[in-house]
Design a protein around this nucleic acid. Sequence first.
RNA 1: GGAGGGGUGCCCGAGUGGUUAAAGGGGACGGACUGUAAAUCCGUUGGCUUAGCCUACGUUGGUUCGAAUCCAACCCCCUCCA
Length: 360
Amino acid sequence: MMLYWMQQTGHRPIALMGGGTTRVGDPSGKDESRQLLTEAQIEKNLTGIRAIFSKFLKFGDGPGDAVMGNNADWLNTLNYIDFLRDVGRHFSINRMLSFDSVKMRLERSQELSFLEFNYMILQAYDFVELHKRHGCILQMGGSDQWGNIVNGIDLGRRMLGAQLFALTSPLITTASGAKMGKTAQGAVWLDSKMVSPYDYWQFWRNTEDGDVERFLKLFTILPLGEIARLAALKGAEINEAKKVLATEATALVHGRDEAERAAETARTTFEDDALSANLPTVEVARADLEKGIGVLTANVQAGFVSSTSEARRQIKGGGLKVNDVPVTDERQLLTTKDLTQEGVIKLSFGKKRHALLRPV
RNA sequence: GGAGGGGUGCCCGAGUGGUUAAAGGGGACGGACUGUAAAUCCGUUGGCUUAGCCUACGUUGGUUCGAAUCCAACCCCCUCCA
């Protein structure tokens, strides 16, 4: 999102992939040591992430076009001795020990491996490389990256005499304190194969009241005046603001058409209590439907529950519906008789999640 | 290398021979109430062809009618000493 604004205001954003640093791991991470990725996997991730970023950024060779970098390009070929001589001598252990990420680990006498300790050096070096290769002068990131970025600025000054800058943003949390999806997971979120535009819209629609204004500012490109007007809405009216938030945020990722369709789908489903043909759809073979499909299986296929056992439990708890009728018998079979006039079967999980079963 | 402590479900964490699929908490999901919100209350939280069966307390064996619990070996982690 920050990169988006920079490009809109005439800068050239660089998205940096941690192809080299994923092998090291940030000290702030937990004990789950990161898996080594093969070159092929990294390459695959790179194109995947690039696809996600292209929704926000324009890549290319033009002056304002974004570029994508992979720090494996320079990190993998590093020679240890040379690196120590050229880069390592600029780092003071005394100072590194004073950084929060390190200090916390030491104070809690948690193990901090040398490998992880080097992470900040590598990240600092990234900044220097980016400056050399692309003339990059500003590095942005979450506030948890502040220390790492500042190290990069420092290293830039010492090695190249360059003046570099940092811009960090607070990590985004909800009003109740939960963290918003972080990078890796966030990328999954933006992929329409993982989360449909409709579900994405729903995610924003269900924002807590206290977050609405902040999210409007952060995740939409609406003028501030408009946001102020929406934020002033009170009580039930704040739902209007949430709808705008959902539509605008979805439009940025999936395009205006998809966003409008998601909004319309939600309107017919929730406000008219009608059936919208645009709900996420699961296709089933007509022959299977004629034989009858168990409700349990159907809900697993719809992705509502991960196992038939869970489906059973949800039925006991009254959480599953077929064509808006709560399921009471877990042995119930869905057949062609259950098809609505529109020729589909509507499955619901909870009040908010719906899907259609469509015979093909 | 020496001495000690420990590995339990999504996470934290009880449990030291017998209704223990395993207390409690967190998180997550469902229900009620609402505004598709928050807070609150209730329920659920291993799998399956579910009145039953199967798999599970680091790994592999052993003792026992019966083990997460006892024994042995191994793997891993932590603390202190060198």
